[in-house]
């Protein structure tokens, strides 16, 4: 039985950026009401540019793998570039069809990062 691609499982078992930054500029915690997933993201900004980012939390393989993939892709981007990203950016990283319910899991990290930026 093969439920998810190996790439997703690799990120799930060994997520990137899974640590709490100590010198972060801003952080934000978000929950997915339907499944209880929660994520907290830490952003270190220098001016307009995201210099470093990390997350903590727990959830399903999709939410954890999506967070790992997404965060490692956005380092170096400007705040506006990050705010302009849409769900397709996540879907291209995940490379699998997601139902509306599971899409919420996959988008949780991106939503948290955007809310962290908007909270500044």
């Amino acid at each position: 039985m093969n439920i998810y691609y190996q790439n997703i499982m690799d990120h799930f078992h060994n997520p990137e950026c899974y640590v709490k930054l100590t010198d972060y500029t801003t952080c934000f915690e978000l929950k997915n009401l339907s499944c209880g997933d929660q994520i907290k993201v830490y952003l270190k900004l220098e001016g307009d540019i995201l210099k470093d980012v990390s997350f903590e939390g727990e959830g399903c393989a999709i939410s954890q793998a999506a967070a790992s993939m997404f965060l490692s892709e956005i380092i170096g981007k400007s705040k506006k570039e990050i705010l302009d990203l849409d769900k397709q950016f996540i879907l291209d990283l995940i490379e699998m069809h997601l139902s509306p319910v599971r899409l919420k899991c996959a988008l949780l990290c991106m939503e948290a990062v955007k809310k962290a930026i908007l909270s500044l």
């Binding site: 439920i3 997933d37 399903c60």
Partner: peptide, 9 residues
């Protein structure tokens, strides 16, 4: 294992 992953499988 998270219940979402189990239910999906």
């Amino acid at each position: 294992v998270h219940s979402h992953d189990l239910a999906y499988g």
